[in-house]
Every structure is written in C-alpha cells, then in structure tokens.
Design a protein around this nucleic acid. Structure first.
Lengths: 191, 191
DNA sequence: AACTTTGGCTAATTATATTAGCTTTACGGC
DNA sequence: GCCGTAAAGCTAATATAATTAGCCAAAGTT
C-alpha cells in the first residue's frame, strides 16, 4: 500500500486544526485523533514527533508565531492609542478564530522550549514598541507592558471561556478596556 | 480490616490539596493519586463522587467559594481606590497560595454546574460593589467590572504561569496595574 | 440478633501513550 | 534498470488511568 506521506510539519498542522476544533481544546488533543485524521496508526506518528507533549509544544509554537505576525502586521504605521487599539483587536480576533491554539499557549509557557521563549519575547517586543508611543519613563515601561499583557490576555480568556454571562455588548466592554489602558498608562507618566 | 472512613467532603479536600501540590495543576489530578492519598483502591472513590470530571467541578467550587469569601473579607469597610487595591491584593494572594485551585476555576466555568455559576456571580458582585464607589453611570458598570476582572485574572495567570520573564519587581507592576485600572475606570465616568 | 445500608474490594473493560521490532516503500548511486 | 539503505509505516506488547459490575464485610438500625 502507498504511504501516507506525512512529515513533522504535516502532523503539527493536523494537530493545530484539531486543537481548534475539539471542544476541550489542547487537553483534548490525543495522538489517536491525530493519527485517525492522518490516516495512519497511532504509533506511526512517533516517526515524526517525540511525544504528545512535544507535539503540544509545537502547536503552541505555531500559535505564538501566528500571534507575533498578526500583532506586527496590525501595528505597522500606527502609533499611540491607535496602535494600542489595533494591537488589542488583532489579539482578540486571533483568539476568537483560534480558541484552542490560544489556550495551547498558556500551559506551554514554561522555560522548556527555547524557541517558544524566543517567539514569546518577540510578542512582548511588539507590545513594548507600541507602548513606547506613550512616552513613559524607561523604568515604567515593564509595568506598562505587563499591565497591557495581563488585561488583554485576561479578557480574551474570559470571553472564550464563556466567563461573561451577561448579554451586554462584549465589543463595547473590550473598547472600554482599551480606553482604560490608554488613559491609565498615559497617567503612569505623571507619577 | 477497618474502613477508611471517607466521605464526599474528605475526597474533595484531598483533591484540592493535590491540585495545589501537583506540578501540572488540575489536569494532572488523577483518581489514582487521590485514592493513594486516601489509602483506598481507586474504584472505591466512586462511592463518593460521580466521576473525575465531577470531582474537578467540586474542586473548582471550593476555589470559587474561597475566593468569594476572601474578596468579601478584604473589602468590608473600605471604599474607592483603597477597596480596589484591597480586592486586587486579596485575589493575587489567593492565586499565589493556591495556584492549582485557581487554575481549576478556569476550565470549569461552563454552564454545567449551577452552584459554580451562582458562586461565580457572587464573586462578580463583590467586584461590582467595589467599583460602585467610582461613581460610574450604570450603563458603564458592566464594562468596568469586565475590565477589572480581565486585568486581575490575566495578571495572576501570567504570574503563576511564569509569564513574566524579566527580574523586575512584580509587586510594583501589580501596583501599576491597579493604578491603571483606578485611573482609567475613573475616566470612564467622563465620556 | 437479624436486617439493611453503605463503603470498601477485586476483576474486567476501554482508551490512551509509548516502546520494540518487523516490513516495505522510496530513492540515491551504480 | 538493479541494489542497498534509510525512512515510514505496521502489528504486538506494556503501562497507566477511568470506569463499571458484582461481591463482601462493616456499621448502623430495628
């Protein structure tokens, strides 16, 4: 019989699809499901990946790269509050399109995978670059980046997790969050 | 041989301990580990709980109740920015003391368990009560609550997950986050 | 003391990851 | 076109975990 013609990249691609389709997100990802979709027996996957955990790490890396690229693309040529808003909306869009992939990023954050650490750092760099437009003193920059990361990350997690029970307009709340960040971070300058 | 003298509550208690001790948090929780700690065989646990998922839901409920009580205790008799700071610090302390339990709250947020939904609503009520001191127009209150939840939730998740790579003082960053929220939410009044 | 409920047990089933070892495909060099 | 080899697949086997079924003994009740 002919071969399936898999590769490391193909397996990771299938896994990233699954992670977004499965209701349980990254935790529900199984090698059995990947193998079924690939049309091979489960152990065959080990020719391309090291383990389920390694596959999860690769999936997380794909997500990190995607996010980095989207944030960069969304913020070229914009500055100040506009850039912050563009960045925020790009992140939220991505998380809504890829809820499983976004979740996969969470737990994989450990210092195991240097690639992931590097790309994560590049994501943070984009945020830092955007916030530079707010004219903060250098010693406050880290605080502003962390605050922004926390607020955006928390919002999309709550939204994707169904944490907002009320029917009130979530878009408006997100806009409010960005306003709060913009106002509050600007005020950090004055202290 | 004498009985172990378990009960639903005792099993949940052991599970909550484990969730905070295990490196993998709630996902690493197994019935086998609970049974071992309880000194019984794994299937014996089913006399007290319905399933692993049900146990996870109970663990999450314990966390939600704890958090609700801590936030209430931290904010009685304080108002305005002081109340917001007290609430924020109470939440962060709890998450640092109980990283696994805090994580357990995340995924269990679905609408399955009405108890959890109720307690979760009570947590939100505390936040709403604190923010009432900022004198927002009623139609902005939901936005402010969501913004606050998102920012605090995101921060403690990033902190517990090792997401803050730089050695810079995390306490100071957290204080900055609370400042940003206070300033920004106050400004929501004016729009 | 007998009866009943309850909590524990062992045995069995299913799903999954993972390892070992075998087979065959595809392919580079002759 | 043939040959050797490495890669890619397979089946078989092992280990862990959840879950169900059915048994038995301990506690508690009458």
């Amino acid at each position: 019989m002919p071969r399936a013609g898999l590769s490391r990249a193909a397996v990771v691609e299938l896994a990233t699809q699954l992670v977004d389709e499965l209701p349980g997100g990254p935790e529900a990802l199984t090698l059995a499901a990947v193998a079924q979709r690939a049309g091979v027996a489960t152990p065959s996957l080990y020719k391309h990946i090291g383990s389920l955990d390694a596959l999860r790490a690769e999936v997380a890396l794909v997500g990190a790269i995607d996010i980095r690229d989207r944030l960069r693309a969304a913020t070229v040529g914009v500055a100040g509050v506009d850039a912050l808003r563009a960045l925020a909306e790009a992140l939220r869009s991505y998380a809504r399109e890829h809820p499983g992939l976004y979740l996969a990023l969470q737990r994989a954050a450990g210092p195991q995978d240097p690639e992931l650490v590097r790309v994560g750092g590049e994501v943070v760099d984009v945020i830092a670059a955007v916030l530079r437009g707010f004219g903060l003193p250098p010693e406050r920059a880290v605080d502003a980046v962390r605050t922004t990361r926390a607020a955006l990350h928390g919002f999309v997690l709550l939204e994707n997790g169904g944490g907002f029970g009320l029917p009130d307009d979530v878009d408006r709340s997100f806009a409010a969050l960005v306003d709060v960040l913009a106002t509050g971070i600007t005020a950090l300058r004055e202290e």
